[in-house]
Nucleic acid binder design. Structure first.
Lengths: 341, 341
DNA sequence: ATGAAAGCGCTAACAT
DNA sequence: ATGTTAGCGCTTTCAT
């Protein structure tokens, strides 16, 4: 049973109100008294009871806003599940989580969503930030107003956030390189279906893969890279074209969305069992293709955790004034094959 | 703002005490009244506030006991970390987690630990059960006394637990088989360093591996299996002997402990780079060996989650009377290679 | 600057 | 069987 505010008050010979003010840095308390109270608290190893704190603060609910590029991208379903799990856990602490979903990567649209959240008043924000200075500046202005910010899944340089929660993209690319080496016996002539070259993370992913192939599997190389912009139609067209142009290819990698469209092209050319195919994440089409043996492996980045941790970190910052030790929290990268999916 | 007990009391024209009794199935309340109260609660979608509930119950602390075979097995360090993380989270809810560690798999020793916990009084128990009817019966007698039980990492048939939290051992073996196929090009002549044939889980692991090799990689087979009993000295001796006896072998798999000793034998015979080597879990020696390229892959079972979830499930059962939907909660199996470790 | 007191939603001891 | 009341540990008015 750790000491309570009441006990400190008794020892310090002040009222509980004063102890509360002193310990929480609230105004209107004598410096000397504050110091004494803090010392007593420290000496007895006092830890505030978060449950009691939450109950007392319950009157005016705290709000955590979320802006997420989830529309039309099944990857984010698990991220949202994580967000909702955290939401349920902290609801009774008087914290409300408000989610705004968006489609695609338009900065002005994202800006609108941030502002609409800000207008209704918010204490913290979790966001998958679009790479644009508009967003960066808006987030920093929120931070200046005392709003706690976490970026998740996508990092954005220059934002004064509490933390980035997501994968290490370079490492995810290296892991891909390693699996390609294993599966092809080091002899991969690889076609890459990428997202768009505008996203730094996705560029790094390709670099990671390239570096491993070059260093460890010199008989392998990336033959061609196309940009499918997470769009199945584009992926279909461009994959088809790429496969026809590069008859020497024997492996494909889907770095982001468009897997469904790209695989259709492979199927129509009768290459399903001739190619070694690799993907990222665990969307329904990926699961299905792995089970059928069409896709050899996929690399996951703990989407549920990305959502869950983002909210829990903000909660911890709001309620307990506790910040994570590092500001880059990398979720695990996990390889899934046919048998552990 | 969901309704409160106070509001229900007002609508039902009874006191808050009666509402509390009715909603929690406590004795001493008229059937008719109880029914009416429940209906009102339901109609307004009432959810009890767990924070307030915890604070009110705070006076007599709840106790969750833990019995874990962790001594001398670094695998369990992460499991313990998960247990402690959960412990910190629920401490302010007035729930105390008391951990008893033990070494090895002696049923009578485990029985003593369970009983010593029971004597001090406990509301729930998380345990890595030794496969013995002594343990099974003792756990069931606790269950009969109203103690909630979760088994983690090891399953034990016949125990009326809330849940088993751990990996699917057969699947873990299949995953091993899949990775062996990838890395060796389907041509593995495998030596297995197992734990002991007495543990059902570890038997299933071997069966899973064998089934995949047989079905998918007919040029592969298990040449020999030795039992190292999680002991490095035994592992060293037996691995050495096995390697000398089976010159045709080209791959090794460490299914449990003893990795350090076994690898020493491999090193001394100068086979480190000639063999493809596979392990389970992520102990320091495994991490080191993977980074050096000596071990090709390891298969992890989310040890942290096993500890964390076990405690959280018991907490949820105790505080919110909420049971998991399924009684087998399988943690993810994840493949780690050099680049995503 | 400090103290006193009310109250967050619930439980539990005590009355009736 | 039901109502009343005190209190869990903390925050937040309202006095002083």
């Amino acid at each position: 049973m750790p000491g309570s505010i009441k006990e400190i008050a008794r020892i310090a010979n002040v009222s509980r109100g004063t102890v509360d003010r002193a310990l929480n840095g609230r105004p209107g308390v004598n410096k000397e008294v504050a110091k004494r109270v803090k010392e007593i608290a420290k000496s007895m190893g006092y830890k505030p009871n978060v449950v009691a704190k939450a109950l007392a603060t319950h009157r005016k609910p705290t709000i955590i806003g979320v802006v997420i590029n989830s529309e039309g991208n099944p990857f984010f379903d698990d991220v949202l599940a994580g967000i909702n799990a955290a939401k349920d856990e902290i609801f009774d602490f008087g914290v409300n989580v408000v989610v705004k979903r968006m489609k695609g990567y338009d900065p002005t649209q994202q800006l609108d969503l941030i502002r609409s959240l800000a207008e209704e008043g918010l204490d913290a924000l979790a966001i998958t930030p679009v790479s644009d200075s508009l967003i960066r500046d808006e987030l920093n202005s929120l931070v200046a107003d005392g709003v706690k910010v976490v970026c998740f899944n996508l990092d954005l340089a220059g934002v004064h956030y509490i933390a980035y929660v997501g994968c290490d993209y370079f490492k995810s690319g290296e892991t891909l390189g390693g699996m390609i080496g294993f599966v092809t016996g080091g002899k991969a002539l690889l076609g890459v279906i990428a997202c768009t070259n505008n996203l730094e993370g996705h560029r790094k992913r390709i670099e990671g893969c390239r570096s491993v192939l070059k260093r460890e599997y010199p008989e392998s190389r990336i033959v061609d890279i196309i940009e499918a912009e997470d769009n199945d139609e584009i992926a279909y067209e461009k994959t088809m074209k790429m496969l026809l142009e590069h008859q020497e290819m024997n492996a494909l990698c889907f770095n982001a969305g468009g897997t469904s469209g790209g695989l259709r092209a492979v199927r129509e050319l009768g290459l399903e069992n001739k190619f070694k195919i690799f993907t990222f994440d665990m969307t329904p089409v990926v699961i299905d293709s792995i089970k059928k043996g069409i896709v050899q492996s996929t690399i996951c980045q703990q989407p549920f955790e990305q959502g869950y941790q983002s909210i829990k970190i903000l909660f911890d910052a709001l309620m307990n004034n506790h910040l994570p030790e590092v500001d880059h929290i990398y979720t695990e990268l996990n390889v899934k094959i046919r048998y552990n999916i």
